[in-house]
């Protein structure tokens, strides 16, 4: 069977797997951003917390993704087989790029601008929300973009713990030793990643303040 034939005959199955995959990624990214961006804003002011938070996020990044899925299964409440566990793992995985870029973006503002802001009588919170955040937004978004591309890839492995998505085809194809089946999962996943990368790249440029 050629990849094209397989694709033709499993069109709707592939379509729904892509949708599943996308849902998994969107939920995971939404949670990851909701955690990492506020945390990044917090660690700009707190040095001790910064070392700890970036350290923990780095550790998660070094755990091989398949192993991380495996480790989570026996953990009560967040573990088990299925989508919930996969989302937890993906959120943990996406922390480092978003957290690091949020910190870099917020702390990389021209010191002269920060000095002026402080001297004009802006409070720390006002400086964070009205100066650091708008000026660091494109760097933060670059981190979100990296994390999204990584998450789309890693999410294929989530099929190993029964989370569904495009990884289903990849694992099935590996078991069947069929390139056609592997490609049915890999090609849409790659296209999703490219699409997300281009889209977020454009947003990043639009938000960049010269």
């Amino acid at each position: 069977m050629t990849p094209w034939n397989f694709f033709q005959s499993h069109r709707s199955e592939i379509f729904y797997a892509t949708l599943d995959h996308l849902t998994l990624v969107v939920i995971a990214m939404a949670l990851a951003i909701a955690i990492a961006v506020p945390l990044g804003m917090l660690i700009v002011q707190h040095r001790r917390l910064r070392t700890i938070a970036l350290g923990i996020a780095s550790v998660f990044q070094t755990i091989p993704s398949l192993a991380l899925f495996g480790f989570l299964i026996p953990i009560p409440f967040i573990g088990g087989i299925g989508r919930r566990t996969a989302i937890v793992a993906l959120v943990l995985y996406a922390q480092l790029p978003i957290l690091r870029n949020t910190y870099v973006g917020l702390s990389g503002v021209d010191p002269a601008i920060l000095e002026a802001a402080e001297a004009m009588g802006m409070t720390t919170t006002q400086i964070l929300l009205r100066v650091r955040l708008p000026l660091g937004l494109s760097v933060i978004l670059a981190g979100i973009r990296t994390a999204t591309v990584i998450t789309i890839g890693v999410a294929t492995i989530a099929a190993a713990i029964g989370a569904g998505g495009l990884g289903t085809f990849i694992f099935r194809g590996v078991a069947m030793v069929s390139d056609a089946v592997i490609l049915a999962g890999a090609v849409p996943a790659a296209l999703l990643a490219i699409f997300a990368d281009v889209l977020l790249g454009q947003l990043e440029r639009a938000l960049k303040v010269v």
Partner: peptide, 17 residues
């Protein structure tokens, strides 16, 4: 205190956004 004292620095330190 600072809001009652004007402050000007080299290169002005204007907010680019």
């Amino acid at each position: 205190l600072r809001r009652g004292i004007g402050y000007v620095i080299q290169e002005a330190g204007l907010f680019p956004h």
